[in-house]
Design a protein around this nucleic acid. Sequence first.
RNA 1: GGGUGCUUAGCUCAGUGGUAGAGCGUCUCGUUUACACCGAGAAUGUCGGGGGUUCGAAACCCUCAGCGCCCA
Length: 725
Amino acid sequence: MKRLGVSVDWSRERFTMDEGMSKAVVSIFKKMHDAGLIYRAERIINWCPRCLTALSDIEVDHQDDAGEFVQIRYGEGEQSIVVATTRAETMLGDGAVAVHPDDPRYKHLIGTEVLLPLVNRMIPIIADELVEQDFGTGAVKVTAAHDPNDFEMAMRHNVPFVVIMNEHGVMAGTGTEFDGMDRFAARIAVVAKLKELGRLVSEKRPYIHAVGHCSRCDITVEPRLSKQWFVKVAPLAKASADAVRSGAVKIEPEALSPRYFEWVDNMHDWCISRQLWWGHRIPVWYGPNGEIKVVGPDEVAPDEWTQDPDVLDTWFSSGQWAFSTFGWPEKSADLAKFYPTSVLVTGYDILFFWVVRMMMMSTFAMDGVAPFKTIMLHGLVRDQFGKKMSKSRGNVIDPIEFMDKYGADALRFTLARGANPGTDQALAEDWIGGSRNFATKLWNATRFAMLNGATTVGPLPEVSSFNAIDRWILSRLSETLRDVDSLLGGYEFARACEILYHFAWDDLCDWYLELSKETFASDKKAPSQRVLGHVLDQLLRVLHPIMPFITEELWCTLTGGESLVVAHWPEANPTHIDKSSESLVRAMQEVVTEVRRFRNDQGLKPSQKVPGRFLGSFDITKYSSALSFLLKLEDKEFTPSATLEIAGVKIELDLTGSIDVVAERARLEKDLSAAKKDLQTAEVKLGNAGFMAKAPADVVVEIKERLTKTSADIERITAALAALK
RNA sequence: GGGUGCUUAGCUCAGUGGUAGAGCGUCUCGUUUACACCGAGAAUGUCGGGGGUUCGAAACCCUCAGCGCCCA
């Protein structure tokens, strides 16, 4: 992080297992327990038979696995029913068979009993709306101790809980020959036995269905009846949802808030105990006579009592980050000053894991005050093809390696430039190289500026004393600063970078510096030197958060200032915005580009000097020496062999010999057909009564101007074509 | 199965009703005293398909198809 230039207060570094954090964890546990929000209960939890621990819902990954789907006949003759299951071995622990109350096929059986094969136990047939009539046979087995849905139904219908597996996922206590077998071996054995008994109605495999896997070890998760600690989330989740609904907390980008609500509005109670050795121990102690006591941070448990061996889910402690880092439960000055924080910046992938937990824990601990005003969610970095990085795919990139190769600023700029709100970004080495090139460009531009006496000394003179090119770049600077401010305010980092990139490279380097070279070589350079100093000064400031290292270096050299880190943020100057200079420079750019194009079409080498002159509009011809410099035109007597007319300016050139008529014809004809197409588009629009009646006035004016311009273009090009004959 | 996105140039992506854009890549020319990590010029899209709304749709609505993510 330091290498990347991350600007944080390192003196406040915290680790979740620090003493201060532990104190907060114990305090909040007690506070929540006292408020009735923490309870212990037997529930079906996700259990990992390898890690030997409970898992929260979010630690379970669902994948499509090839399993089997078998139909088994329970009972005999009239008094029989066929159930469908993917986990045949659990039938040993069935406590009932459930059907939908409205299912005509089974109505007569509801309330009766059938014989459970293999274990030879009578079990009831119950009716529950949870059963889907269209799925399988419409009848499901109810294994209360080994399936969450079955557990729910069992609670409603008083079905007994029959535990048939130990914590390792090995069959136990069924009183059958299957005891001691692994769950998967038992599945095969049970199916084989049922087949032998003629109770297997159908088998389907492979049967692709979603199966939960442990996010740590990837083994298939086993739902298990177990005594665990839970957080009652309903009131906490509601407070968290309300905070966003009321606008007290804003989610950026807004488009991701449905995901937030989907989670907080449908949250199940949160299993917080883990059977791991690492983590905060649950602060509950058990007395010799079965007493239970939550021991607070300043309390000591009585002798002879033993502490609960389980630890807390890691998100229980990290969920307290927003206040525990400020010394809570002490009423510290930091807490008063910094809580709530303004913005939380994090990836959308931990919206559920972390952000929601922080919202819940914080609003509870801090008397309803949410921990931040804005939650800004960014995307994930992916490989150059937009694929998720993963070790198995071998497309993981190492940021350190890229920083070694291209510099931290290049990596930072690339990341910022790709950070479109809420969406993932692809990252390729080539693009980091491109950012490095941008950094080099800034370096060289500053070097050029220094060589030409750019300065930041003294107040910036009134704009009226500047030439149009200087006024233009000041105008563009203010517009850029204004737009960047607004984009950064909306967390639109990618667009802000884009604007800065083009301002620096296109406006400043490609046009301003080139158009001003003539001035810098003259005795009228002083105003431009001050302008260039100002523009670079402001540009480096605004780029500093994105590229801190190079801007710091350049800025200090340019301005002689102590450090850019503590310099003021640049502000747009509305009085610098000058539309007439902008349109003048735009016309000059058009002239330059068109002449270059002509030269190129004519096969002239870029460096080849050609006699030429500008006639017409004084606004532009006033800058003819700058234009000639860019276009390598020589000011001397000549007889023109080619004439161009661009933006109201006539350019006469001497190509010393005949021009390439074929190339020029091709060019002109191409331009002509493009102009004709534009003209037609405009004419169709203006000839459309509906358009004229309903389109806004400014759009109509725009189209009319386009019509005028393209008509003139067509006339000019046609004349030029005729002249070529 | 539920939810939620996405589909625009070769690639990665911007673009929330008025003539289709960027970076990279491609082609041509070029050692012009800031920069070859550069400069100049060029090519490239029936904006996934089909309907609809509108004077006007890449954008809004419906529908189909494909892809992704989250949750079950």
